[in-house]
């Protein structure tokens, strides 16, 4: 709820409409967040420069071994104009998105079918439940053997990572629909198709988006790990995972940190996109 200012006449003045930017600037939480990030950077800077300023004996454990943020920023500015760095972004995003989208495209209908059709569930749920606990990375060796190229193996493992999570969320969401909604719709004469498309699907949307958010996180993990494992040969190379691996091999600690922060930003962008999509698809959840 927005504050309602009471004017001197005693009547309530309507709150003025504020732009999104205005709201952000006036938001206390936003400034707390900004402060926290600045404090974090300062502590890191001071911590890692202690030994420089006061001598070896003052080396702060752990933080003292990490390059300070200013060095990282310099290294970052160096790679920013390079095509290779942006190509890493592109490669990783391409892999994450393709794996994720295929997982959504197959996982949502599969989960819904499991939820609404008993025969389908009896048949496919047991094998699904046996395969689900296998962590995506445990699939890597097998898929390297199955698939002709490294790139395809990465794509497959990425897909698996998101697929299981999405299916289990969709299934759970669709199974826990309040029976009152189904009864009300049926009393009003809804056909099976209507029941599915107008009741089951919208009622499951929140779970679909929860699954998508978690699945997106898993795809990033899998893609980066796969990029490091594949080691950037001619096939299946590149990506932010390889960027970090390459920096490690080259002994550049600052670049490793640049890569890590880049991944953090990429993940943040991905989950923001999913949240925005969720808001757009579920206007009834937007009021809070």
């Amino acid at each position: 709820m927005t504050d309602v200012a009471q004017s001197s006449s005693g009547a309530y003045a309507l709150p003025r409409r504020r732009s999104k930017l205005e709201k952000l600037i006036q938001n206390v939480s936003f400034w707390r967040g900004v402060t926290a990030v600045i404090v974090f950077l300062c502590v890191w800077e001071v911590g890692s420069r202690m030994d420089e300023w006061l001598g070896e004996a003052w080396t702060v454990p752990f933080v003292g071994l990490i390059p300070p943020p200013t060095d990282v920023a310099v290294a970052w500015l160096e790679v920013l104009p390079k095509a290779g760095y942006w190509n890493s972004w592109y490669e990783s995003f391409r892999r994450v998105l393709s794996g994720f989208l295929v997982a959504m495209a197959l996982g949502i209908p599969f989960g819904l079918l499991l939820a609404v059709n008993k025969y389908f569930r009896d048949l496919f749920f047991p094998p699904f439940e046996i395969l689900r606990p296998i962590p995506p990375l445990a699939w890597v060796p097998a898929s390297l053997i199955f698939w002709p190229t490294n790139e395809m193996s990465i794509a497959f493992v990425t897909f698996l990572g998101a697929f299981f999570t999405i299916v289990i969320n969709v299934l759970g969401g669709a199974r826990s629909i309040d029976v009152r909604y189904l009864r009300a719709a049926q009393s009003m004469g809804a056909s099976q198709w209507h029941l599915f498309s107008r009741i089951v699907l919208p009622a499951t949307l929140p779970s679909i988006f929860t699954g998508a958010a978690v699945g997106m996180g898993i795809t990033w993990e899998v893609v980066l790990a796969a990029e490091m494992i594949s080691g950037g040969g001619t096939q299946g190379g590149g990506g932010l995972g390889f960027f970090i691996w390459n920096s490690y091999m080259g002994g550049s600690l600052t670049q490793i940190v640049v890569g890590m922060i880049s991944i953090g930003i990429a993940g943040f962008l991905s989950s923001s996109a999913i949240r925005a999509l969720g808001d757009w698809f579920m206007p009834w959840k937007r009021m809070f």
Binding site: D178, R180, Y181, R183, A184, A185, Q186, S187, M188, G189, I199, P202, A203, L205, M282, W284
Partner: peptide, 19 residues
Amino acid sequence: KQGADRMVVFQHGALFPWK
């Protein structure tokens, strides 16, 4: 058979939240 000739108003309400 469920039908629109007997409409139920539920104990905890059953308006579709997404409409």
